[in-house]
Amino acid sequence: MVMSTRLLLPGMVLAAATVIFPVAPAHADDPVMHHVKYTVSVAKPIYADIYYLDQEPAIFADYSHNPYQFVPNVKVDIAPGKPWTYELNLAKPDQWALVTASTGTEPGTPMFHCDLTVDGKVVVSNDGPKGVLCSIRHW
Rank of each mutant, 00 (worst) to 15 (best):
V2A: 15
L9Y: 14
G11S: 15
M12S: 13
M12D: 02
A15D: 06
A15H: 04
A16T: 09
A17Y: 11
I20R: 08
A24C: 10
A24Q: 13
A24D: 09
P25W: 07
H27V: 15
A28I: 11
D29S: 12
D30N: 12
H34P: 10
V36M: 03
V40I: 09
V40P: 05
S41E: 08
P45R: 02
Y47G: 05
A48P: 05
D49L: 13
I50W: 00
Y51T: 12
Y51S: 12
Y52E: 01
L53K: 04
D54Y: 10
P57V: 06
I59F: 13
F60A: 11
A61Q: 15
A61N: 06
D62M: 11
Y63V: 08
Y63A: 02
Y68E: 13
F70C: 10
F70M: 03
F70S: 01
V74L: 09
D77F: 10
I78V: 12
A79F: 05
T85G: 08
Y86G: 02
Y86N: 01
Y86Q: 04
E87N: 07
E87A: 07
E87D: 10
L88K: 05
Q95I: 10
Q95M: 12
A97T: 02
L98T: 10
V99F: 00
A101K: 05
S102K: 06
T103M: 07
T103A: 13
E106K: 09
T109Q: 14
P110R: 01
M111C: 03
D115T: 03
L116Q: 07
V118N: 00
V118W: 06
K121E: 14
V123W: 03
S125I: 08
N126R: 08
G128E: 05
G128T: 04
G128P: 03
K130T: 11
K130Y: 07
V132S: 00
I136T: 04
I136K: 04
R137I: 02
W139V: 08
